[in-house]
């Protein structure tokens, strides 16, 4: 167990190291998710609009 506390402590630099890695992971995940959700939304809009165009035609 001691080795783990030592690991998280990082020679006293723990807070700085862990917060920088966590912020990076959070921000990058957020960016990827936001981009992915935007893509989903645009896909949905395209299919909706195409369906409407189809209905009008028939």
């Amino acid at each position: 167990m001691d080795s783990w506390t030592e690991f998280f402590n990082m020679g006293g630099y723990g807070p700085y190291i862990w917060s920088s890695f966590l912020i990076a992971i959070a921000v990058m995940t957020g960016l990827a998710l936001q981009s992915w959700m935007d893509l989903k939304k645009q896909k949905r809009l395209v299919s909706e609009l195409e369906a409407r165009a189809e209905r009008k035609r028939s």
């Binding site: 990058m28 935007d38 893509l39 645009q42 809009l45 609009l49 409407r52 165009a53």
Partner: peptide, 26 residues
Amino acid sequence: FFIGVLMVRMRAEILRRKVRTLQMQQ
């Protein structure tokens, strides 16, 4: 990771323009 997100965003942007033209047509 950068390239992956770039591709996703480009796909979304292409579709966004398609949505725009479809809306204008309708």
